[in-house]
Write a protein that binds this DNA or RNA. Sequence first.
RNA 1: GCCGAGGUAGCUCAGUGGUAGAGCGCGGCCCUGAAAAGGCCGGCGUGGGGGGUCCGAUUCCCUCCCUCGGCA
Length: 305
Amino acid sequence: MKEKILFLVGPTASGKTAAAVIFAKRIGAEIISCDSMQVYKGMDIITSKPFPALRKKVPHYLIGVVSLAKDYDVTRFRRAALNKAKDILKRGKIPLFVGGTGLYMSVLLDGIFKTKASDPRLRERLYKLAQNKGSLYLYNRLLRVDPAAALKIHPNDTRRLIRALEVFTATGKPISELQKKRKGLYADYDVKILCLGLKRERLYRRIEQRVERMFNKGLLDEVRKLLRRKLSRTASAAIGIKELKGYFDGQYDLAEAKELVKLNTRRYAKRQLTWFRKDKRITWVKLTGNESPKETADKLWKKFF
RNA sequence: GCCGAGGUAGCUCAGUGGUAGAGCGCGGCCCUGAAAAGGCCGGCGUGGGGGGUCCGAUUCCCUCCCUCGGCA
């Protein structure tokens, strides 16, 4: 009998956080965040972390555990998340991954290929090359060493071109070969993936309301504080930082900054949905968007079996 | 009520006697060590209603409706 592992995913502002706590309590689960930004310390309002009161009801992991100055990546996440999951299972509880970062979900479910750690200097060199000679130059270079990978990557997608070249240089093997070897939780456990789904119109309204709430709760102060610190490249990518920086720098007014936050959050949600739609293993839990957290948890319960 | 300007994509607007574009918005997609990142693709339209001229009208004419500004 395989052990049970659960995922609760969904686009931003769909209501995962509050429902997850009620649901987790009911089924005897502990929550592991599956979110690339909530891992950072000090980014509380901006990432809509669950409040301390909520976190007291059920154990939460991987929230606020990385300092702002540090870069974070999929591999670190995967390692930490798997450790937590095993730990929870050992105590006879169910691990419940909750979050909206599609790639993080994917590396947990299906694994990640093994390679050496990335070399920042090599990466920097490739990046400079791309700047000076254009990404097409990198593309042609990749085409020679790993045509299979080049076929899958668009010539303008500089980041993936760099990554593929970086892996080839470091290992001597094409990334397209390495990527074939992966294995994740889905193979060894009884995995159920629940995804909250609501009409686009409703979701966008909820995003709008959520952004307003964030500002009411002191987003401005929080981001002002964040901007005084040294932020790593990954930390500074959170939605709300560059948008409010523009306002603080006097490039536009507060109303416009708010609209930018809303716009970029909508786009983010749209990309999340593309990711989730693609995964046919997902069980969709349809919501109207007016449910209380308890009602959402009830619906999750019904799809649980 | 009179005079003037205008009604074209969700919004702001361009253009043409041969069934229409642009920016923004929006939609679809890709994703394996930056992923709240990065990249690709797509006009999504009874051209205010009705009538007329014409081989053919979004474009010209008439009329009605609506919006904005001015005069009353």
